[in-house]
């Protein structure tokens, strides 16, 4: 039969009868339909029952796993962001605390030095006042002594000039008169 087919095509070129052209030979139709049904049926069965569900399962599994990992990554990222925010916050807090601490220390030191300066100043002021008082007192005493020395000297001068002793009362009144003049 195989030979018959091939001779059909080899010899039947100019037409004549059926089957000059192999794709249009009806006597080979039944065999092709049957074998197409068998092979295509087998292929459909294999694909629909075995191959496609298997590939679908692999793809679904991968999608799930990727989705899960993406979710986990997003959660981790959120956690990391929270931690970083908290860290930033604590740093800012510490910074402000440190600034406040430094400020208060500075204030305290300034107040302390202010106070010590003031007490020193007042102490010095007091010392100055007592010294001034002392000086005034000394001056007054010295001035009093000057009166006595002057009257003595005046008495001695008068005695030497006149040869007569004078009484201190006279000299004192004379000095008072000279002072008043």
């Amino acid at each position: 039969m195989a030979d018959e087919h091939s001779t059909h095509t080899e010899t039947g070129h100019g037409g004549g009868g059926h089957g000059a052209f192999p794709p249009f030979q009806p006597d080979a139709f039944a065999s092709q339909i049957v074998w197409l049904a068998l092979t295509f049926g087998a292929l459909y069965f294999l694909m629909s029952r075995v191959a496609l569900p298997r590939v679908a399962a692999i793809l679904a599994e991968r999608k799930d796993s990727i989705g899960q990992q993406l979710d986990a990554a997003a959660a981790m990222q959120a956690k990391a962001r929270d931690a970083s925010d908290a860290h930033d916050k604590s740093i800012a807090e510490a910074k402000s605390k440190a600034q406040a601490l430094a400020q208060s220390a500075r204030d305290q030191l300034a107040a302390q030095s202010d106070a010590s300066r003031k007490s020193l100043e007042s102490e010095l002021g007091a010392k100055l006042a007592t010294a001034e008082a002392q000086i005034a007192e000394t001056t007054a005493r010295a001035m009093a002594n000057v009166d006595a020395i002057a009257s003595d000297a005046a008495g001695a001068i008068v005695e030497r000039l006149t040869g007569k002793a004078t009484t201190p009362d006279v000299i004192a009144s004379a000095i008072a008169a000279a002072k008043q003049a």
Binding site: D27, A28, A30, S31, V34, T39, L43, L46, M47, A51
Partner: peptide
């Protein structure tokens, strides 16, 4: 006539390749 032909053989080959 449903003989196993060269056409049938290539159909089987195609199915095997896809499988």
């Amino acid at each position: 006539d449903i003989s196993f032909t060269n056409s049938s053989a290539y159909m089987v080959v195609a199915v095997l390749i896809v499988a």
